[in-house]
Write a protein that binds this DNA or RNA. Sequence first.
DNA 1: AAGTCGTGGTG
DNA 2: TCACCAAGACT
Length: 355
Amino acid sequence: MDATVRQPRAADLLAWYDRHRRVLPWRALPGEQADPYRVWASEIMLQQTTITAVKPYFERFMARFPTVDALAQAPSESVMQAWAGLGYYSRARNLHACAKVVAGQHGGRFPDTEEGLRELPGIGAYTAGAVAAIAFDRPAAAVDGNVERVMTRLFAIEEEMPGAKPLVRERVLALMPSRPGDFAQALMDLGATICTPRSPACGLCPWREPCRARIAGTQETYPRKAAKKTGKTRFGAAFVAMREDGAVLVRTRPAKGLLGGMVEVPGGEWRADYRLEEALRDAPLVAQWRRLIAPVRHVFTHFPLELTIFVAKLPLDAQAPEGMRFTPFARLREEAFPSVFLKALEAGLEGLQRH
DNA sequence: AAGTCGTGGTG
DNA sequence: TCACCAAGACT
C-alpha cells in the first residue's frame, strides 16, 4: 500500500451525485422517499437491461399495473404480454409470483430489510440490496456491474469476477455513508456515466485522486474476468400459417426454459445439426408450405440462431392442431411474442404478401 | 458452480 | 463482423 495515496470518501461521491444525478422515471426527486413498488419493478426490469430499453416498458407497465395489488391480481398472460420484447422472461414470471406473495402475505407492503427482500422470488443479492437501500434507506450494498467496475478500479482488485464479488461488497460497506440510498444510486450513476467500461472519463471523476487503477493507468483492464465463449449456431424452422381470413396459427410455449410462457409460431427443436431436408417434419399441419429464401437470424446470450421460414395459406375451415390456436390478424399485436418470433412472423407475413 | 436465460446497442 | 456489455437470478 502506498501511504501517499488518498483514501476515497463517500462524501466526495455524494457531492458529485448531488450535482449530476440522473433523472429517471422510477427515481424519487431529492428529499422524496421512493415508492418501493416502483423501485422494485424498475430493478427487475433493469437486470441485464439498458435504461433506454426499460424506460418505455416501465411507463406502460406502471400505467397498466399501478400497484403491487393490481399486478398480483392480473392474469399472467397480461403480464407476459407487457414484458414481451424485454428478454429474460423468467424475470416476468418471478415478478408476478413476487407480487402475489407481497400482496397475499405481506399486506401489499414490501419487506423493508435486505434479508426479507432476499426471500422473494426474483430478488437476488443485488436487487435485495438495491431495494433496501433505495426504497428504505438501509445501509445495504447493491453490487451490480457498475459497482463492480467502479470498486475494482478504485482499489485495483486483481481477483477475477465473480470471485471478487464478496471483496467488492466489503469495500462498499466499508465506505457506507449516512445516505445509503443516494450512495447506492451514486455508485451506479458514476459507473454508467463516468467510470464506463471503455474510455472512462477519469478527468471528471470525483474519485480520480484515490483511484489506484487510474494512477497506474490501467483503468480499462478492470474488472478482471475470464473471456466467455460463444455457443454454436443452432438451426430450426418456423411455420407461418395464415387462414384466408388473415388469422395466424400460434401456440404458447411451455412455462419453463427458453422463452418460457411466451407465444410462438409453430416450429421444431433447434439443433446445431439440423437438416433442412427434414424441416417439413416439424410442420404443424399438412399444407402447401413454401420456403422463404432468406432465413431469420437471431442471437441469444449463449447461441446464435438461424430460422428457416415456411409459409402457407390455409382454407377458412382449417382446424388448429392440438395445443395451437388461430389469432385474428388484428389481435396479433396483443400476443406475447418474444423478438425472435416477431422477426419470424414479420418475415412470414412479408413472404405471404408478395405472392 | 458453471450454464442457462433475451435483446439491442456499441466500438 | 464480432465480442462485449447492460441496475442478475436461478439451478
